[in-house]
Design a protein around this nucleic acid. Sequence first.
DNA 1: GTAATTTCTTGAACTACTTCAAGAATATTG
DNA 2: CAATATTCTTGAAGTAGTTCAAGAAATTAC
Lengths: 188, 188
Amino acid sequence: MKSHLLTYSDFTEEEIAQVLYHFEEKHFKKKDLVISAGQIDRYQYFISHGCVRGYIVDYNGKEHNIAFGFEEFWFGDMESFTNNTKAHYNYQALEDLTVLAISKTNWDKISSEIPAFVEYSRNLFRNAMIFQQNRIAKHLMQTAEQRYEQLITEHPYVLQRISLKNIASYLGVTPEFISILRKKAAQK
Amino acid sequence: MKSHLLTYSDFTEEEIAQVLYHFEEKHFKKKDLVISAGQIDRYQYFISHGCVRGYIVDYNGKEHNIAFGFEEFWFGDMESFTNNTKAHYNYQALEDLTVLAISKTNWDKISSEIPAFVEYSRNLFRNAMIFQQNRIAKHLMQTAEQRYEQLITEHPYVLQRISLKNIASYLGVTPEFISILRKKAAQK
DNA sequence: GTAATTTCTTGAACTACTTCAAGAATATTG
DNA sequence: CAATATTCTTGAAGTAGTTCAAGAAATTAC
């Protein structure tokens, strides 16, 4: 966490200690829901160990993964957290999970006390925004096959930890179709 | 611009004057490229009047719209602007355009001098991130028909100012298919 | 360590959306 | 206001990806 803070802004040792003081460690078991759609998300989470998926449930009850999180990633339903509204997204532990959680109260407190933390979060949000925009661009430009190819070449470790079903959902296709792509790739 | 600043953070009158001082007004004609992919984007733009589209060109030379901007919107290739790297996206005026432009130098200067500006930009980035995430979720959940229906009911003014072709590209479908949807809707 | 559950694969029929081509309508330019 | 360019529509044929169903493989749980 400390090194993550320093990567995105300049903190004094004192400030770092002050920031870290406002986090609490939490543990979840595999399959636990950390954040539930319909409830207010009062925390942001920094992953120390384990991984999560964020997903939304549509009118037909079908789940769609919008994000994965691994070690050193933040997750949370930012809209819910910021506006105290009901979350649209669920976040579920895909492995036993250890997180550093910060409450809205503490987040706001640190934000008002430590300018470096505002800059830190600005930089995180900016990077997230760029990432999401690039993801949309890929969806518009590429076929499902190209998106799958790119995922496994750029993030091969994802395959190790995330089931095909969840990858399919993230890419916006059915697991059956990924199976077809795999077979096709194997035949080459 | 002033009211926009105050909506997203607390500025003193003095700070506002200081911020505004660092912008320059620029004008573009309809169809002009404000930002070109492959070049470094050294400005961020706040739209006073007119509208723009952001798009990316794929390997086949096909254009894909990733964003529209209207009055009181910011635009720019944030990745290029931040890292001084070549822009991936083009931004083109769809109408005669008046913008307030701020250079990277001035942006960084204001950021270091005025904490309220860091908070302002943090809030903008956060909202943009939320917007993009929701857009991805819609792409995963909805058919093109549903996305089109939602666009015209939630943002009917868009239809007034943006051509069908550009809307189609934004939604990730062909203009022909939008035509089919329109016909279908008209028959009801 | 075997039963139960979940994940992955395969195939056949289907559908949302694309491509190409050509004409009609609209907007832009000199 | 005529000429040109661009946008929009229509239709027919094609394709990327879906759905459903059922079996095989892998994980999880007692």
